[in-house]
Write a protein that binds this DNA or RNA. Structure first.
Length: 363
DNA sequence: GACGCGTGGCC
DNA sequence: TGGCCAAGCGT
């Protein structure tokens, strides 16, 4: 076999015929070791691949790591996860965001247990039918865990491919075209490694800002690099930011207990624990928000904490005013609410915005 | 196809 | 520091 340098030179001269081989060579030398990845040459466990792919949706590798380990230790296989309660899964997921993923994760495990005898379907089409598994994740599991010749396309691969071919069409319209181009980077085998090679390349070399093109195995015939405007790809339609919303959160203590409730099953922060609060509306003032305070015996006046809690969701920024009150022992909670010891708050399915509100209120 | 859906890290 | 970005899915 000719040396790597010789093969690379030869490839540049012969156009892109052996890009898949260059990519796999690079991957064999530089692949990242991640908790859900099998050793070189080994087939990955579908459960681990699935669990990691769901957690990694719109979420960084570093953030996912500890959650993946926690889940694996508590639920070592899909059967164990399918027999757990949704509430336990939500509690374990708390802090990771996009909570519909956790609900679908549990629903998926239940479905695999009930409809597939506890074994993941081994085809892209079969996987695609399961809750929480969309076109990307179905392809990723099929390629990585089942060695099926298919190319998943995530944000990293969109960036790499759009630069390689200088795709002028903006996202998301360009998705079908990019999917076609990405599939040409599949070799005759090792589909999962080809996909993971492109993802590693996208996260470590072909980064959004200041890509390290000198280190890229595909730099010789990258169309965007030849033009010198790599960072301008992928083209994207400009996106609009949301309007500021305001609301109030009520921190009610009864000794060392805190008043909480569970949010509606669907929608924003669905199924998660929260402290009682007002609606979150654009242009709402403090007085209007205070009118939505929970009614409890013995509260003569609310204490308004100095300052506000701010939080930025994907589609809108939020400002919460914090009101506090302390009530007598044995005060009944309003309908739909409950008291929980402050000491056990860590075990609740509390999204970060609520942790911030509580921290501010108890401060 | 557009929108709703968290959070943390980056410069 | 505020906008951008990260292994998308469901509706």
């Amino acid at each position: 076999m000719p040396s790597l340098a010789a093969r690379k030179k030869q490839t540049a001269a012969e156009s892109s015929a052996s890009r898949p081989a260059l990519l796999l060579d690079w991957y064999d030398r530089h692949r990242r070791r991640l908790p859900w990845r099998a050793a070189a040459g080994e087939r990955a466990d579908p459960y681990r691949v699935w669990l990691s792919e769901i957690m990694l949706q719109q979420t960084g590798v570093k953030t996912v790591g500890p959650y993946f380990e926690k889940f694996l230790a508590r639920w070592p296989d899909v059967g164990a996860l399918g027999r757990a309660s949704q509430d336990d899964v939500l509690r374990m997921w708390a802090g990771l965001g996009y909570y519909s993923r956790a609900r679908n994760l549990h629903a998926c495990a239940v479905a695999v247990l009930r409809d597939h005898g506890g074994v993941f379907p081994g085809s892209e089409e079969g996987l695609r039918q399961l809750p929480g598994i969309g076109p990307y994740t179905a392809r990723a599991i099929a390629a990585i865990a089942f060695d099926i010749q298919t190319m998943p396309v995530d944000g990293n691969i969109e960036r790499v491919v759009s630069r390689l071919y200088a795709v002028e069409e903006p996202l998301p319209q360009a998705k079908p075209r990019i999917q076609e181009l990405a599939a040409t980077l599949l070799g005759a085998s090792r589909a999962g490694d080809s996909a993971q090679a492109l993802m590693d390349l996208g996260s470590s070399i072909c980064t959004p800002k200041k890509p390290a093109c000198a280190l890229c195995p595909l730099n010789e015939d990258c169309a965007a690099r030849l033009r010198g405007d790599q960072e301008s790809f992928p083209r994207k339609a400009p996106k609009k930011s949301g309007t500021l919303r305001r609301g109030a959160a009520f921190i009610v203590t009864r000794g060392d207990e805190l008043l909480v409730r569970t949010r509606a099953e669907k929608g924003l922060l669905g199924g998660m624990t929260e402290v009682p609060g007002s609606d979150w509306l654009a242009g709402q003032d403090d007085k209007a928000a205070l009118k939505q305070a929970p009614e409890l015996k013995g509260i003569t006046r609310w204490h308004r904490k100095v300052g506000v809690v701010t939080h930025v969701f994907t589609h809108f920024p939020l400002e919460l005013v914090i009101y506090t009150a302390d009530v007598a022992a044995r005060t009944r909670p309003p309908a739909g609410m409950r008291w929980v010891p402050v000491a056990t708050l860590a075990d609740e399915a509390l999204p970060n915005v609520m942790r911030k509100a509580i921290a501010h209120g108890l401060d």
